[in-house]
Design a protein around this nucleic acid. Structure first.
Lengths: 141, 141
DNA sequence: ACAGCACTTTACGTTAACGTAAACTTCCGC
DNA sequence: GCGGAAGTTTACGTTAACGTAAAGTGCTGT
């Protein structure tokens, strides 16, 4: 048996993170991470007072930050996380509500996708005009 | 001459909008539009006290709202608008600064594009799991 | 034993982006 | 000439998402 020995890492996912580590890696302040916890978006384990973050906690934090990059509020990011963790409420209407939210979010993403494409085209034009102006300046007739 | 007569619309772009019209069409409040003006993002003509919006003003407003949908701050939207209206400052370093901002914005958009794609995949997975659960419930063995 | 560093809680401060209310003016139809 | 709708200014209020400061805890190297 290759992995049955008493290795320092019984399971490959046993790794944990301090709040400072996560803050540096993901480029946020510790204040921000604690704030997200206050808002109920994170619930790390504790060793005494100190927070211990699991890889899953780290993933949740990354989800929040990705939402932030897309302009989502924390409430919206919370919804997205709940979509990912179906909370095991196997009720019927709940599932339909889930589906509705999924489609709603998808519609929003589609809109953003379109907005981005248009904006990219406009940036292309702006860059083009910019280049032309530089040309006209460098070797002005 | 076909268009030299004193028609009600001398030029095809002579149309104007009231603040209320724009608010209804673009689904914002008049307060919001006035706020954007206070922030220097809009400068409509005036007839007396009353604001008169040109088609160009309307475009600017739509640009702001699109930026908002992408999570941009008003300051960022202002920058984007300035990129589109090069302000005719034909200086050299200014042009390079413009190019830099363009590339910066493009990088940001690229990041958002990537975020959206990943998030769409996750929504697909979530929907799939949701469907399966509904299956298991409707005709439970 | 003690400095130093990372962590903790508590609490008040700040900024952006509006909302909301009050108190006008202007125009339009009747 | 008057009520209502749509416009205006001024000003204070609100919410989200943290920033910042104060004061304390806990380990770690020397």
């Amino acid at each position: 048996m290759s992995q049955t020995k008493n290795t320092p890492q019984p399971r490959p996912d046993a790794r944990t993170f301090s709040i400072g580590e996560l803050a540096r890696e993901l480029d946020v302040t510790t204040r921000t991470i604690r704030f997200y916890e206050d808002m109920g978006l994170l619930t790390p384990r504790r060793r005494g007072q100190t927070r211990i973050y699991s890889p899953a906690d780290r993933v949740r934090l990354k989800l929040i930050l990705r939402g932030k990059r897309l302009g989502f509020s924390l409430a919206e990011s919370r919804e997205l996380i709940e979509l990912y963790n179906p909370a095991s409420d196997n009720n019927r209407g709940q599932l339909q509500a889930l589906m509705d939210k999924i489609h709603e979010k998808r519609a929003q993403l589609t809109q953003q996708l379109h907005d981005i494409e248009v904006m990219q085209l406009e940036l292309d034009e702006a860059e083009q005009r910019c280049r032309e102006t530089m040309q006209r300046i460098t070797h002005h007739n």
